[in-house]
Design a protein around this nucleic acid. Structure first.
Length: 480
RNA sequence: CGAGGUGUGGCUCAGUUUGGUAGAGUACUACGUUCGGGACGUAGGGGCCGCAGGUUCAAAUCCUGUCACCUCGACCA
């Protein structure tokens, strides 16, 4: 077991050292390891277990909403990728190509999927013939490859794990409803399971997915005031259907094109959790996705009765359905405290000779550092309540407060610049809808449009940039 | 791709200016003492000093080339 776990930098000196703080946590909490494959990373067991928990929760919801899991090939022939013009233009600069099979050169080279719309389309074209075949609600858990120039663990790597949902519907209304429904699934997951507040909204024209009619997104604000897109949901209209020749016969015996959606979240969510909740001592995990929800640290474990009692507590908490671990290694208690704080374990239970005499133990909460003495008889119920209610709610409120402190409502460019002097964050400002203004705001202030939130506010009736009548309020922010 | 920086035990680095036995901290192994916030002692193992050439009696150190990685800028879940 490696023991040098101290964080090199601290979050208090946020601006310069934030990136260092972030990568330190990724490595020291044993989430990842770098490899000889540039821009890719090993997700280690502890990091992968977080992802598995996210998968389990989301997949359960997908099943409840009627989706079926499938698996498409990893390769897409160039000819297939070419069929939808906007789509190929958007993805071409960042796809990896397979040019040879063994020693033979391929006639139609294959790209390693950057996303699977084209494959799903080909499949739909084969199986959708009648209105009775619709809708089809699919999802797949796979990895995709995008040849990024600069990479960062979880936030941007060349290969990443994700879930991509793809659905096809008879009508536009149905498809739009699905797009919004899945965005809400993501938002609920982020807010309830990850304790991370998000803004739900629509992307501007310039920022939408390649080939989409409209793109919806959830945006979260990180510790350092930068915005992170945590999930997307796209409505495609019938554009892909036309390009791929997907048609069905409706009730009136007419041939028509169906309407499609796709939506996805990725292992980036792990990065979002780190940067939303992490602190100077390391990672802070929301209980719902923490691989270990509670750790028992015995004090003076060589003394009689300590390990026996610790094991009793272990069994009791396990029986209560808590993911609990007893660390009976030879490391000192202080070392163990620091170790599990680094790894973000939500609850720590200390049990030593003094406690055993008093029939109690100490329960420490990771996210706020609070320690309490709890009678052994009450422990399981107490910890269960912490994990299910108090900790997730407390973490959410803390994150929401940070976001509120870093959200600025502005009516002029000058005001935006002045606000940002206090630190990066979300800027709320009115917009006329013109791309020129969107670009100008970014150029003059450094913040780009993140989304047009569903929850609109009327901050003023003029565009923050050109002063012409405003169409909507936009969230602006710096991206990673 | 444009600019800057760094390559030395697993990790963090010193040593390079001025060439002369390969260093420290930490981690690792063993034994003993410890144990309520990253314990201590003793002993031990571990290096083609990024790679390839060159100069020299002698190169981690000087010269040439090369590769890799990191940070900052444009694109991106």
């Amino acid at each position: 077991m490696a023991k040098d776990k101290k964080l090199v930098s601290e979050i208090t000196s946020m601006d310069e050292d934030f990136a260092q703080w972030y990568t330190d946590i990724c490595k020291k909490a044993e989430l990842i390891e770098y490899t000889s494959v540039k821009g890719c990373m090993v997700i280690r067991p502890y990091g992968y277990a977080i992802w598995e928990n996210m998968q389990r929760i989301l997949d359960t919801t997908f099943k409840e909403t009627g989706h079926e899991n499938v698996c498409m090939p990893m390769f897409i022939p160039e000819s297939l990728l070419q069929k939808e013009k906007d789509h190929v233009e958007g993805f071409a600069p960042e796809v990896a190509w397979v040019t040879h099979g063994g020693n033979e050169k391929l006639e139609d080279r294959l790209c390693v999927r950057p996303t699977s719309e084209t494959l799903f389309c080909e499949h739909y074209a084969n199986i959708v013939h009648s209105y009775r075949d619709l809708p089809k609600l699919y999802n797949q858990w796979v990895s995709v490859v995008r040849w990024e120039k600069t990479t960062r663990p979880f936030l941007r790597s060349r290969e990443f794990l994700w879930q991509e949902g793809h659905t096809i519907h008879a009508t536009a209304e149905e498809a739009i409803e699905e797009t919004e429904r899945m965005l809400n699934v993501y938002a609920d997951f982020c807010e309830k399971s990850l304790a991370m507040p998000v803004i739900k909204g629509k992307k501007t024209e310039s920022d939408k997915f390649a080939g989409a009619v409209s793109t919806y997104a959830i945006e979260a604000l990180m510790h350092d005031g930068k915005a992170l897109q945590a999930g997307t949901s796209h409505y495609f209209g019938d554009g892909f259907a036309k390009a791929f020749g997907i048609e069905y016969t409706d009730k009136e015996n007419k041939r028509v094109n169906p309407h499609q959606t796709s939506w996805g979240v990725t292992t980036r969510l792990i990065g979002a959790v780190i940067m939303t909740h992490g602190d100077n001592s390391g990672l802070v995990l929301p209980p719902a996705v923490a691989p270990v929800q509670a750790v028992i640290v015995p004090i003076a474990q060589h003394k009689e009765g300590v390990l026996e009692k610790a094991n009793e507590l272990l069994d009791e908490l396990k029986a209560a359905g808590i993911r609990v671990k007893l660390d009976d290694s030879e490391n000192s208690p202080g070392w163990k405290f620091a170790e599990y704080e680094m790894k973000g374990v939500p609850v720590r239970i200390e049990i030593g000779p003094r406690d055993i005499e008093e029939n109690q133990c100490i329960v420490a909460v990771r996210y706020n550092g609070e320690k309490k003495t709890v009678l052994l008889g009450d422990l399981a119920v107490y910890v269960k309540a912490l994990l299910e209610k108090e900790i997730p709610e407390g973490m959410f409120n803390k994150a929401a407060e940070n976001r509120a402190n870093r959200t600025y409502a502005c009516t002029t460019i000058e005001e935006i610049n002045k606000s940002l002097e206090k630190g990066d964050g979300f800027v709320k400002a009115m917009w006329c809808g013109e791309e020129a203004c969107e670009d100008e705001v970014k150029e003059k202030t450094g913040v780009g449009s993140r989304c047009i939130p569903f929850e609109q506010e009327q901050l003023s009736d003029k565009c923050v940039c050109c002063g012409k009548p405003a169409k909507c309020m936009v969230y602006w922010g710096k991206a990673y």
